[in-house]
Design a protein around this nucleic acid. Structure first.
Lengths: 214, 214
DNA sequence: GATTGTGAATGACTTCACAGCT
DNA sequence: AGCTGTGAAGTCATTCACAATC
């Protein structure tokens, strides 16, 4: 029954939810797909199609009730339970991510940092996320019910860390290390490749500089 | 002449380049699209199409010469000149990004951090990137020839900072703050939305948990 | 009257199949 | 023989147009 939902769609659902939170905070009761579409540069049928995948979430002639749709989206995105996140690597990036406010919204909780350096183990991030030895991953993951791992270790150890994460039974990974990592099919691996992002900007700049129209 | 190149394509070019660097380091002379394709999960014609946008980069019957293609890709991506990057916001994330090794490869240089807090201005990151007052952006950007800005400030000030970046004549922005920011059409704005990424993983987990096949 | 939900049309990207070099 | 470059076919995603509903 559940026709495959594309990643592009789920990403947009997140964006809608964020927008609904703002509308709700502003006391808005209902919103039309047209109004929503104007906020980003999407068109209205796109939004309706996205939402229609999950049933008849709107009311014809009226639009979508903000509180209602918000609750539905939270459920669809699986945000109506507390999701515990572990961050692998307590270097600059790992520590920054551990305390990143955006990660604490919407029911996510950063439960633990993992590293293999003696100095770091036993310490904690500024906001108080404890740093454990990576050897304890399996134990802590089970104890704290960690379901998502963020990879913020150097490239050289990234694959080994992913393997440990997988072995600990974690099924969702957000990877910040560059390059292609391998994980079993039943593990969802999402890459945030900062080098690729920067290079894509560089490409744009290079194009602008030389001949281009539009 | 320059038929529009999609973002998906340019992202793959980055990935190819990274792979070529490894092959080159390993002393490999030439590589076929088939061999390249096996590294990631792409198929060979995809790679050939991507490269063919930019001329006849390969040699029939042989494949692509590694050093040659590497140089070509660096040129296509605009990496054969030194690109100076500024990071807006010297908080946890900004400081981590300033020292992130991945940002230093391939000709990028982090030239400056900007913040508006007195304590921070005049300091520097661990790796030695100086922190300037954001009021000096225009001056420093011109002096250091900064062409890319990374937005790592809290959401509340993100739009204002983008406006300043645009006013300083910077045409490429990598945005880490959540939500939609506005910039003129001639400025390339690329979003790295960590909340959206996490929520997309959450969606996957929610699907697995309830009914789903394949 | 307004706005959703949706089949049909369009457009974009990917894959295939093979002609064309080396 | 081997592998690239590319038109054609196929697949997936977006946009349109309108019937169904409130």
């Amino acid at each position: 029954m559940s026709s495959q939902i594309s990643e592009a769609t789920t990403n947009r659902l997140s964006v809608y939810l964020r927008c609904l939170n703002e509308l709700d905070a502003a006391g808005v009761r209902a919103v039309s797909s047209k109004t929503l579409a104007e906020q980003f540069d999407l068109n209205a049928p796109q939004i309706r199609k996205d939402l229609a995948h999950f049933g008849e979430l709107g009311v014809r002639g009226v639009g979508y009730y903000v509180k209602d749709l918000k609750r539905q989206l939270r459920h669809i995105l699986g945000l109506d339970r507390h999701l515990k996140v572990a961050i692998m690597g307590a270097g600059n990036l790992g520590l920054a991510l551990a305390d990143y406010p955006g990660f604490r919204q919407e029911g996510f909780g950063i439960a633990a940092l993992f590293d293999n350096l003696r100095d770091k183990v036993g310490q904690q991030s500024r906001a108080g996320v404890p740093i454990y030895d990576i050897k304890e991953l399996r134990k802590i993951a089970r104890r704290d019910q960690i379901v998502i791992a963020v990879i913020a270790v150097p490239l050289s150890s990234a694959q080994a860390v992913v393997d440990k994460v997988v072995a600990a039974g974690i099924k969702a990974i957000l990877n910040f290390s560059p390059g292609a990592l391998r994980a079993p099919d039943d593990v969802k691996l999402k890459n945030v490749d900062l080098t690729v992002s920067l290079e894509s900007l560089s490409f744009y700049l290079a194009r602008e500089a030389s001949g281009d129209d539009t």
